[in-house]
Computed example of a mutant assay.
Amino acid sequence: MGLGSKAKALQTVADRAEQLYAQLMDIRERLARIEDDIEDSSDRVVTIERELEEQRVILDALAEDAGLDIERRIAEASITHAESSGDTNEGGDTDATEEGAAATEDEATEGGNSTAEDGTDDE
């Protein structure tokens, strides 16, 4: 093998090393942008969670002023959701849904709340 072929092989290795270095720098830049995007997204999530908590406090206060039983309504919505999910989810736990429905009905009758009173609350 002559000196020219060794120089050519060495040049090929050097060219390949430059290509790899350029690719590595590109990957580092992309990773830095991804990290920035993740940080921005995290900040947005924190802001949204804070705003959601503020809205919950306001809604709870409004519901309390209006005399609405939020916990009961959430339980009813959960039961309705579980029942509709149970139709498409074969082998689901229907016993827990039925127990929750019975508990909600018991709470409604114990608290003296009737469905007639609830009809005026849905605005």
Rank of each mutant, 00 (worst) to 15 (best):
Y21R: 14
D15K: 03
T47N: 14
V46Y: 08
Q19V: 07
S42I: 06
R44A: 10
A17C: 02
L24A: 14
V57T: 09
E35V: 01
E18R: 10
T47K: 10
E39H: 02
R30C: 09
M25S: 12
V45F: 13
A22K: 08
R50W: 12
S41H: 08
D37Q: 12
I27K: 10
E39G: 03
E39C: 12
R33S: 03
E53R: 04
Q23F: 02
E53A: 13
R56W: 02
L24V: 13
R16M: 04
V57I: 11
V57D: 06
D26Y: 07
R44P: 01
L24H: 14
R28Y: 10
L31H: 10
R44F: 02
E54T: 12
D37L: 13
Y21S: 15
I58K: 09
S41I: 15
E39A: 13
A14W: 04
M25T: 15
R16K: 14
Q19W: 08
E35D: 11
E54Q: 08
R16Y: 02
M25C: 04
I38W: 00
L52F: 06
V57F: 05
E35Q: 11
L20W: 02
S42L: 12
E49I: 03
Q55T: 13
I34L: 14
D15F: 05
S42T: 12
T47E: 15
D15T: 07
E29R: 10
A22C: 10
I58E: 02
M25L: 12
A14P: 01
D37Y: 07
I58D: 03
R33Y: 05
E35I: 04
D36H: 03
D37V: 02
E29D: 11
D15Q: 05
V46P: 00
R33M: 08
D37M: 05
D15L: 06
R30T: 11
S41K: 05
V13G: 06
I38R: 00
Q23W: 00
D43P: 04
R33L: 06
D15P: 00
Y21W: 09
Q23Y: 05
L31K: 13
E29L: 14
L24M: 14
E18Q: 12
Q19R: 14
E49S: 00
E51F: 01
R44H: 04
L31G: 08
A32E: 03
I27P: 00
S42H: 09
L52S: 05
R30I: 15
A17M: 07
V46D: 13
S41M: 11
E51W: 00
V13T: 03
M25F: 09
V57M: 01
A22N: 08
D43W: 09
L20R: 08
I27Q: 12
E29M: 11
R28F: 11
L31W: 07
A17E: 07
T47F: 13
D36C: 01
R50T: 07
S41T: 15
E18V: 06
Q19K: 15
E18Y: 04
R30M: 11
L52H: 01
L20C: 02
S42M: 13
E53N: 09
